[in-house]
Design a protein around this nucleic acid. Sequence first.
RNA 1: GGCCCCGUAGCUCAGUGGAUAGAGCAACAGCCUUCUAAGCUGUGGGUCGAACGUUCGAGUCGUUCCGGGGUCACCA
Length: 595
Amino acid sequence: MSFQSLLHTAALESLQQLYGQSFEATDFQVTATKPEFSGDYTIVFFPLLKKLRRKPEELGNELGEKIIALFPEAFTGFNVIKGFLNLQLADGNLVQFLKENSNDPSYGKKVSNGETVMVEYASPNTNKPLHLGHLRNIFLGWSMSEILAANGYQVVKSSIINDRGIHICKSMIAWQLYADGATPQSTDTKGDHFVGDYYVKFNDVYQQQIAELTASGMEKKVAEKEAPIMKQAQEMLLQWEQGDEQVRALWATMNSWVYEGFDKTYNRIGVGFDKVYYESDTYLLGKEYVQEGLDKKILFRKEDNSVWIDLQDVNLEEKLLLRGDGTSVYMTQDIGLAIQKFEQYPLKKSMYVIGDEQLHHMKVLKAICRKLGFPFADDIFHLSYGMVELTTGKMKSREGTVVDADDIIEEMAGTAAAHTAALGKVEGSTEEALSKLYDTLGQGAMKFYLLRVDPKKRMVFNPEESIDFHGYTGPFVQYTYARIKSILRKANVDEQRFEFSVSTENLFKLEKELILLLENYGSILDESAREMNPSIIANYAFSVSKLFNSFYAEHSVLQAESEAKKSFRLALSMMTANVIKSSLKLLGINVPERM
RNA sequence: GGCCCCGUAGCUCAGUGGAUAGAGCAACAGCCUUCUAAGCUGUGGGUCGAACGUUCGAGUCGUUCCGGGGUCACCA
């Protein structure tokens, strides 16, 4: 049981003994004591004053005395200010807690709860390489998966690849027209970039053709439809749908180039998937449920034979599910895939990491599933996040105004190298070890930067300013870890077997605060899963590092006042390192042993 | 226009209805013969977008308004 819930229980019991009536959770709150007051945890008991008709000082003192009388080993002192009762935890408690957990690398991790959740993320189109916006999505998805796993869930990481449609045909037609048989191999280009270049090429030609047509007197809107290259792309999409062998072959080839490129990026940033769905396999799903819905009269047909669902009773609009010609729309296949996921896995939750421009779409998806009578409708969760924009405006692949994922990953590693060189910390390491370090630090900076902000807030990225390595950053947390490891190496402790002798000396303020913060890790884990918010973890990892660095500056570990104290501080350092390492892992960030 | 999200220090952001609203960056002043200065300590900087309301208590809850964004496709 956590210290906080221990106090909650103690307070409930004390109140009952004192006043002989039952109390509810809303009668008082237990919070961490603000640093400017003495004490560790605070009972806020304003609401009780009315209920019991007592003065604050009286009630506070009675309650404080009762708690200490009932739990003398846990609490050693208290003070009352207005409606706040500040309790002091016994140092012995904290030392005992540290003793039990300091050398447990999986401290905080919950045991399996037997429930499975799916997290769908990344979900790229196959006509262009990944950019910074995708990275926010990917890191969020990966991080949420890790957080849920640490909370005891079995996690299935999934991705739906948008591998068909007009956008792919644009790259394909441009390649056919202008590549002259070039391939990623022949041009020494990463596959996704190679295909993306032809997507840009398509758009260049398209714009030029529109300009020519409008110059010869055609209206712009007509020109946009009549441009020859656009017509060719549409023709190609038609051929794809009819299963034209040549088109399908080209499509398969170009997609394979893209996948090869994506895999390189995924590998570098250390993410992956347990289940990959392809839209070319799923885009016909959902149709059978339309027939079922029609039979049950949940759906209806209009004069033109199109099929709709009426959601006006839940404050949404009428939504089309099948066109008049019987073809399906995006929503139809999304319903089909949603169903398939629950059929394939025993899911407790199905989570989608998708940008907030699709909030409405996901709301409608849930509403339709509910209406069609699927009980899983309420187990669908949309982790929506704000767009990443640039100081120069929105990122648009077809206009080339994007921060490319591979570029920024490489750039961050370069920045890490520059910082390291400037600090003169490159001696005595192999080329290989250094390159690995730079990648760890660069990615630490980038991942932390993208995850430290509440997902629902949109972000503006300035490509002119590189991501920071000081202050509230990944490298700051990583640095704290490396510092601790350096101490532990010098002390020659076996981290797996280390046991410290219990110190009878009083704890210093910073020591106490640090233990309390480490103790809080479990509830932070809960909260980040419940709120679907990795920034809570980032925030926490920073707080732990910040506090440890203060402790480090104030107290010496290796030159401690006594052997017992040294041993205690080694344990405290070890546990801090463990918590930093596991919380960063939840963000997809690795820790360096030295830096 | 309807609905949703955001608005907190110059900038980027924290802040389960509780005490004097906190960090980082930027600025300024200190701290490396002592465990890694990618660090630590301190100073300055606020009408929490505005008003009204609920409450013992509001940055937090409600209403209205202002500003920014998104969305309301037989696009994906």
